[in-house]
Design a protein around this nucleic acid. Structure first.
Lengths: 358, 358
DNA sequence: TTGTAAGCGTTATCAG
DNA sequence: CTGATAACGCTTACAA
């Protein structure tokens, strides 16, 4: 992976055009400072030499990289397996392009996120799903690079993108309660590090509070053993549902904290002979594009995945002129329930279903 | 997006530790060249000063960026909407991490791919879906940066990752023919640029050849008006199917060139009151993770999405020691049909279905 | 309008 | 084993 032949440098162009290096630089960056025919001549010579300014040298001189980094505590291959991330990244990419910024991914290098952060040459870091217990957040803070935390627990004065998890979760559970459901299974997202599980600010904790509040309104308690955790993927959802079923749980409704997991649960339920929504209702979270195309279409809590990405870029690039530096640069998006076909009134009598595990 | 306070430089550390800049560099990069207590002292001072080598300066001096770029002719937001890309990127990320490389995305900047390529500071470029008619490929070639073409038509001696589209497509169509189908709708991927549509090497052309060959074996001709093109997304699939239906086409089987489009077709068919596979069979292409979780699970042509990404990184990073420079650095993966639930024998008599459009 | 020269923060070369 | 010193390729005051 070496450069083949030595590329023309600014000095080569200057020499060939009989001007100074500065003139060449001007010809490309601020042509209005040069006479138009000088510019033309320089450009001509440059393209003849196949000259292209070295982006790295320019980064060093300008001390800007024109790049934003998306930081994830998980390896990229697991991250990309959840369509949620793709939608978020699409939002980042949109805003980045508008701002003339490149997008780089920062994920653990040889198992070390810290190393990856050190190697990353970016002007801003968008950290998604980084728990407050991750030491890297301190590292980033110290590095002086602007950053924004997404979907994680931030200090009140720290730039962050959040959504109203509790309200969304509450709406989801309330919907099921209204349909007569009383026996719930909650499928939650397991934290990247074991330590974060107990954190009250971890996303799973926040959503769980919303679920429980709505259930409590109807006098129902969601016990801890009706909450099962797994990775936020379809496989994770399948696994979680089967695990709960094997443990003897017989819910009439599932509250999944991610659409990917909800789709997995859908699949697992079908494998067990349960009809959705006749025998089992399922509510997801995220409102992914695919949620419209599952069968049945998924009832889920909407959050603006792409917009979150776009806003993250804005925040990390100083938020533009409208941002008041006195206010904390946090942005919380609203969530709302989208009712589709995966939820229905509770079955009056539970059907007999194949039950080889319990 | 500026650095907050001036970061400590190697010169600061050298001064504070009473050594030369070179010594500091050694302490981090080749500590074995220094006495162990010198290293310890330098490291100590460095961490006290919160010193971190500037990645950009190091890139310039080493003339390596330790970064691979994934280049796409489409904007990132549309690209990320197709899960196929996520799976491919996951593969790239896996191999990149193993090689200690960062991953950067290169997509049109302010509408110009050329500009984006110029600004990109990468050691290698993985170009996906770049038609042979794209001028950027010449630009890349000239730049001297190693590159590999994925899913596009390459010169025979050009590094490329390909799959056996024709065989896979043939298997898909043959499967349907064997089930008794005679009336097909082909849903193809529209090219990024209009010009590429006619290219015999464009992916849509390649797959279409496979479909047609299998049909021809049974004495069936797939007419041009039974082929409809759209963007490789779920929306694209919905659109395409409705368009065909509105045009009066009444296929018993759909051959979709991407799973995303197949899922869209599934959805559209259901909206029209068609049962899959009872009334309509659908075969996709890609074998995305989600293909297992649709209802019914999708019969599709498997291609190794993640492996393609991994191999692309290997090829662009010189392919390691095993590569013979005399052989063209091309890698063609095999494809095969995966039969799931979305295909069945042709309905003996077409059911009456709602038909408000034709 | 154009040129000169001093950085930018490393790594690499080559004496000591 | 250690330390000056010269690249690396470009931008940007400051001069002319």
């Amino acid at each position: 992976m070496e450069q083949a032949t030595r590329r023309a440098t600014i000095a080569d162009v200057a020499r060939a055009a009989g001007v100074s290096k500065a003139a060449v630089s001007f010809a490309f960056n601020t042509p209005e400072r040069l006479s138009s025919d000088t510019v033309a001549r320089i450009r001509d010579v440059a393209s003849g030499l196949d000259y292209r300014p070295d982006p790295v040298a320019r980064m060093l001189a300008q001390r800007r990289t024109w790049t934003v980094g998306i930081l994830t505590p998980q390896a990229l291959d697991v991250i990309f397996s959840n369509p949620y991330f793709g939608e978020f990244a699409a939002g980042v990419a949109t805003a980045a392009e508008a701002a003339g910024l490149a997008v780089q991914f920062i994920s653990p290098l040889h198992g070390s996120l810290a190393r990856a952060v050190d190697r990353a040459s970016v002007d801003g870091i968008i950290a998604v799903g980084l728990g407050a217990d991750h030491p890297e957040i301190g590292q980033i803070r110290r590095s002086g690079i602007p950053y924004v935390l997404v979907d994680s627990t931030a200090l009140p004065d720290e730039p962050a993108i959040l959504v109203d998890d509790e309200t969304g979760a509450h709406a989801a559970a309330a919907h099921l309660v209204n349909l007569g459901h009383r026996m719930f299974l909650v499928i939650g997202i397991e934290p990247p590090s074991a330590g974060a599980a107990a954190e009250p600010a971890w996303v799973t904790s926040r959503r769980l509070r919303g679920y429980r509040a709505a259930a409590a309104d109807a006098g129902i308690a969601i016990q801890d053993d009706a909450v099962v955790l797994g990775p936020a993927s379809m496989e994770g959802g399948i696994e979680a549902f089967h695990q709960a079923w094997a443990a003897g749980l017989r819910p009439t409704a599932v509250l999944a904290m991610s659409d990917a997991m909800a789709i997995g649960a859908l699949r697992a339920a079908r494998e067990l002979g349960l009809r959705v929504p006749a025998d089992l209702s399922i509510v997801g979270f995220d409102d992914l594009d695919v949620a419209q195309y599952t069968d049945p279409p998924l009832t889920t809590v909407h959050q603006p995945n792409r917009e979150k990405g776009e806003e993250a870029v804005r925040l990390v690039t100083d938020g533009g002129p409208r941002r008041n530096p006195l206010e904390p640069a946090q942005h919380q998006f609203a969530t709302h329930l989208v009712v589709r076909g995966s939820t229905a009134v509770v079955p009056p009598v539970r059907q007999e279903v194949p039950d080889d595990k319990a």
